Computed example of a mutant assay.
Amino acid sequence: MPFPGLKPTATSGSNAGPLAGQVALITGSESGIGRETARAFCRQGAAVVLNGRQATRLEATRQALAAEGYQVAACVADVTDYAAAERLIATAITTFGRLDILVTNASISMRAYFRDLTPEVFRQVLDSNVYGSVYPLKAALPYLILTRGSVTFISSISALNGMPSGSAYCAGKAALANLAHTLRLELADTGVHFGVVHIGFTQNDADKRVLDAAGRSVPIAYRSPRWQKSQAEVAASILRHVRRRRRRTVVSALGYLILVVHTLLPRLGDWVVRASQRRLRNFYE
């Protein structure tokens, strides 16, 4: 049932499902994991607000989902800009009248060792991962409190134990876990769910790029296909996490192994990473 004072979203036979009547906003959903997560929520009946910085690609994603019969809206916004984040949340409220689910997926990654990294690139990557989650949440929180909604930060298994050549990315993703914990304590009486999903190695779009030490866009480091999950598999994990209102979800067996080793045998974990850095340089570089 819709929450008092909030209008329900329209539903139809094509979008009836467990999340019918709910509105989900997924940042960074013009492509990749975000796009497939949006599709997964649509299939469960939610109305979805898409977001990205590339207008052409964002519109193509919106049209593709709309053509499948789903309720979708889109807003071009850089979520590291608070005014843009406010505009993004306003799009959800103006279009659908409420907000039930926020998934902060937008972020920038990198491949560069810290000693080579320019301060500006470090700041850019950190901002995208921290403020890119904080700003949309800050703007959305009053509406999420009304619906006793759900917030999920998309983190990474690299936040569990660090990863050479990913200092700013790992720092930003690790910060999200502590942020979620703090918000659970501060806002326990609101009924809002705060969770974190640590994703592992995932198949990327062919044109996926990350930043190098000087801020240039370069291809992502090589990952063996046998270590990768599909974008649809990761999206399904995010959907289950939100529906079950979990505190933490670690995607992939490798992620669980990293978590266990880091917790119980941290020195062994560091030795394994250093050994892999010597033997599998293209994994990091």
Rank of each mutant, 00 (worst) to 15 (best):
S12P: 04
G13Q: 14
G13V: 14
G13N: 14
G13L: 15
G13D: 14
G13A: 15
S14N: 13
S14K: 15
N15F: 03
N15K: 10
N15H: 14
N15Y: 02
N15P: 00
A16D: 12
A16Y: 10
G17Q: 02
G17L: 01
P18R: 15
P18K: 15
P18C: 14
P18I: 15
P18H: 12
L19T: 05
L19S: 04
L19N: 09
L19Q: 09
L19K: 07
L19I: 06
A20V: 12
A20Q: 14
G21P: 08
G21I: 09
G21C: 11
Q22F: 04
Q22H: 11
Q22D: 05
Q22L: 13
V23N: 09
V23E: 06
V23C: 07
V23H: 01
V23Y: 05
A24T: 10
A24W: 08
A24H: 03
L25T: 01
L25W: 00
L25N: 07
I26R: 00
I26P: 00
I26F: 07
I26S: 05
T27N: 07
T27F: 07
T27D: 04
G28R: 08
G28L: 02
G28C: 00
S29C: 11
S29I: 09
S29D: 10
E30N: 15
E30F: 01
E30T: 15
S31A: 13
G32F: 06
G32V: 05
I33A: 00
I33Q: 05
I33K: 05
I33L: 12
I33Y: 06
G34Q: 03
G34L: 02
G34M: 06
R35C: 00
R35P: 01
R35D: 02
R35E: 10
E36A: 09
E36D: 13
T37H: 00
T37Q: 03
A38M: 01
R39A: 14
R39K: 10
R39V: 03
A40E: 00
A40N: 04
A40T: 06
A40I: 04
F41R: 06
F41L: 07
F41P: 03
C42T: 01
C42V: 02
R43M: 08
R43A: 15
R43D: 01
R43G: 06
R43S: 04
Q44N: 10
Q44E: 14
Q44F: 06
G45S: 13
G45Y: 06
G45H: 11
G45V: 15
G45R: 12
G45P: 11
A46I: 01
A46P: 07
A46W: 06
A46R: 12
A47L: 04
A47V: 00
A47R: 01
V48L: 07
V48G: 00
V49M: 09
V49W: 04
L50G: 08
L50Q: 10
L50D: 01
L50K: 08
L50S: 04
N51S: 10
N51Q: 12
N51Y: 08
N51L: 01
N51M: 08
G52K: 07
G52N: 05
G52P: 13
G52V: 09
R53F: 08
R53E: 06
R53C: 05
R53A: 10
R53N: 07
Q54Y: 12
